[in-house]
C-alpha cells in the first residue's frame, strides 16, 4: 500500500499540518510502511459483524445521560486566559473573508 506524494500532501492539507519537503518524504515512506501492516485485516471475515465504536458499551456505561440543568460555567476571564490573541470578550483570529 504505497502512498504517493500527492496523497501525503492531501492528508496534510486535510489535517491542516504544514510539512517541509523532508517531512513529506519521510512520512511518505513511514505511512506507506504502516499502512502495509494494516493489510492483515483484509484476511478477517467481518461480514455481518457489527462495529464497536466504544469500549464503554461493553462495560454497560455508554452514554450516561443526565438532566439538562443550567449550571455556572467558567468565567470569560478564565476561558480567555490562555488565548494567544483576544479582544474584549472574544478570541481574535485572522480574517477569514477578504475585505
Amino acid at each position: 500500500m504505497a502512498l504517493d506524494r500527492q496523497e501525503v500532501q492531501h492528508m496534510a492539507t486535510l489535517a491542516r499540518i504544514g510539512l517541509t519537503e523532508q517531512e513529506l518524504e519521510s512520512f511518505q515512506d513511514q505511512l506507506s510502511h504502516i499502512l502495509e501492516q494494516f493489510q492483515i485485516l483484509a484476511e478477517v471475515d467481518t461480514s455481518g459483524v457489527s462495529p464497536t465504536g466504544h469500549a464503554a458499551g461493553a462495560s454497560g456505561g455508554a452514554g450516561v445521560m443526565r438532566d439538562d440543568i443550567p449550571q455556572d460555567s467558567s468565567s470569560f476571564e478564565d476561558v480567555l486566559s490562555n488565548a494567544p490573541w483576544q479582544e474584549g470578550e472574544f478570541f481574535r483570529v485572522k480574517a477569514v473573508l477578504e475585505e
Partner: peptide
C-alpha cells in the same frame, strides 16, 4: 503528526470502510 495524518487517511472518504469501519468490526 504521523498519527494525525494516519487517522485523517483512515477517516477520509474512499478509505473509511476499508480502514476505520473494518477496524471497528475487528474490535467487536
Amino acid at each position: 503528526k504521523r498519527r494525525i495524518m494516519l487517522g485523517t487517511y483512515a477517516l477520509s472518504s474512499g478509505y473509511y470502510d476499508a480502514y476505520y469501519l473494518k477496524a471497528q468490526q475487528v474490535r467487536t
